[in-house]
Write a protein that binds this DNA or RNA. Structure first.
Lengths: 222, 222
DNA sequence: TCCTTCTTTGATCAATCTGTGAACTTGGTT
DNA sequence: AACCAAGTTCACAGATTGATCAAAGAAGGA
């Protein structure tokens, strides 16, 4: 992974989903897709993306419901896709916590523009650039880190891995989940890879920064 | 979650399924139906409903099997429909992970009451990942536990066992049922295994956390 | 292209957990 | 009270899982 923001697309029409995904990937975003409400919620909860692109009309339950569930714990920027310029849909969508909307049919270009706008706004928000925990501090805009006040050099993977833990305190992830969410790998990749980078992170940020849960995986140290 | 919970009904008799669905829809639930075991599992996986109403006798494979598969990844509240007031059916159903049961013939009114009761219970800790009972608290996302405020280390098996009891308060399970539901073993494994882990759990979470029912098995302490 | 740095992977060793039997204790019954 | 069945405790061998390391492979810059 990288500084490329992660985006979850929740859209039941495969053609639109694929088109959007392709375009966004070309823009350098990290894109994941869900095709209905429930799996959308699950995806967002698991992935913790930087932004969600959400169809208003979905099987399972609709986009507004998804939006509400997503926002329950903490704010994730949401852009709604609405079929028509229906004002009431729109108000509902924004009321549910969407940050912006775009009406179908839309040009990919327009969507990308909105995404950048929303991300810029979200990033301007306070606390976006710094992650702290114990003696560790990461600056996500500069991708630098310090341990007990001492600057440490972190490689891209190490930084993303550490940042992932800092963004999900208290949660334990399996190696496979980490490979999917931090690396973006489909699955089946070598699990030793995770171990190696955990080792590197521990060496640089302190042995207790990451906690091992035997038989399960890793989580942020308590 | 919306004020309209989604319910999956798995029932092979069309008359019963229709009657139940009608009544539940009248109550404002969002109802989906499957008519046999395999499609029931598929429905639940796809729909991720708030609750499942499950017939014990089904074509394909029976309700217990469905229940087990459903619960494999995460807990979904289940209410079992049993044809007769057969005690062994009942225990088995609860052993497989059902939250409540109701014997046919039942009044729609009774079913609705149970559904509300189960949903209330389930919502007490809505996905927050926290299970509480007396001085014990488990965090299912971090797989950590505390006893009277003191953090305790639980191994994977111990944690799963304790969590199982917390998710099924008031229900007593035989050792074999525990081996099947917590361990996932087919059957016939050593019953001392359960005892050993019960012992470990008691040592860590207090001797009264698990209650022994002589000649039957174990349940959450009252 | 070559060189440097980072990532991935397999092998090996160490730590931890699990399952099991035997001895011992408790509870229920006659 | 004596007896039998059931539950508890304990220790340890075997199995799993994690840590560490070295080296090959990939990516990127000079």
């Amino acid at each position: 992974m990288s500084d490329h923001p992660t985006i979850a697309v929740v859209e039941d029409e495969p053609a639109i989903a694929a088109a959007v995904a392709t375009r966004l990937r070309a823009e350098g975003f990290n894109v994941h897709i869900a095709v209905d409400g429930p799996s959308g919620v699950a995806l967002v909860e698991q992935l913790q993306p930087d932004l969600v692109v959400l169809d208003l009309m979905l099987p399972g339950f609709d986009g507004i419901e998804v939006c509400r569930r997503i926002q329950s714990d903490r704010h994730v920027p949401v852009i709604m896709l609405t079929a028509r310029g229906n004002e009431s849909d729109l108000v509902l969508g924004l009321g549910a916590g969407a940050d912006d909307y775009i009406t179908k049919p839309f040009s990919p270009r327009a969507l990308v523009a909105r995404i950048h706008a929303v991300l810029r706004r979200a990033h301007a928000a306070p606390g976006s650039g710094r992650l702290r925990h114990r003696g560790v501090e990461l600056d996500t805009s500069g991708r630098t880190g310090t341990h007990d006040g001492v600057a440490v050099h972190l490689t891209v993977t190490e930084f993303d891995l550490a940042a992932w833990f800092l963004r999900h305190p208290g949660v334990v992830f399996t190696r496979e989940q980490l490979l999917q969410s931090v690396w973006g790998y489909p699955d089946g990749s070598g699990e030793r890879t995770v171990d190696s980078h955990i080792q590197a992170v521990r060496r640089k940020l302190g042995p207790d920064f990451v906690r091992t849960v035997h038989g399960v995986g890793y989580g942020l140290g308590q």
